[in-house]
């Protein structure tokens, strides 16, 4: 069963968000989503300096078998994108909650988020 990291919050669209205190929040996709997509070969991320809106598409994730929209779980300005994951999208599969993070946002407001137990229960993940 796919792992759900207990310290994170999740959107229903399978993005996770880590609130790093006062600084920008880090966003990625859950292991549940990464496992369902298969081997990820391409990520299209929002540009640093652009604004993302909670619940709206801000990029896409492409695996060998399918392509999915990436939805921002929060509204705010993108402060940084993970260049390593653009170069090596397989990081999303191998370390979705770590080296496979996608981008950071200076959060103005959050969309509806789930706690890890709520997300795990709804998606058959393992805490």
């Amino acid at each position: 069963m796919s792992k759900v990291a207990s310290e994170l919050k999740y959107s229903a669209e399978h993005e996770w968000i880590a609130a790093d205190g006062a600084g920008p929040s880090t966003i990625g996709v859950s292991a549940v989503a990464a496992d369902a997509l298969g081997d990820i070969v391409y990520v299209d991320l929002p540009e640093a300096g652009s604004t993302v809106t909670a619940g709206e598409s801000c990029g896409e994730i492409e695996s060998t078998k399918s392509v999915s929209d990436l939805y921002s779980p929060v509204t705010g300005e993108v402060t940084e994108v993970n260049a390593a994951v653009v170069d090596d999208p397989a990081l999303v599969n191998s370390d979705p909650y770590g080296a496979g993070w996608l981008f950071k946002v200076a959060v103005d407001s959050e969309g509806p988020l789930l706690t890890a137990p709520e997300y795990a229960a709804a998606n058959g993940g393992e805490l």
């Binding site: 298969g38 081997d39 070969v41 060998t64 078998k65 599969n93």
Partner: peptide, 10 residues
């Protein structure tokens, strides 16, 4: 559909 990684299988 796959056992572990479809890329590794390919």
């Amino acid at each position: 559909l796959k056992y572990s990684s479809e890329l590794a299988e390919h």
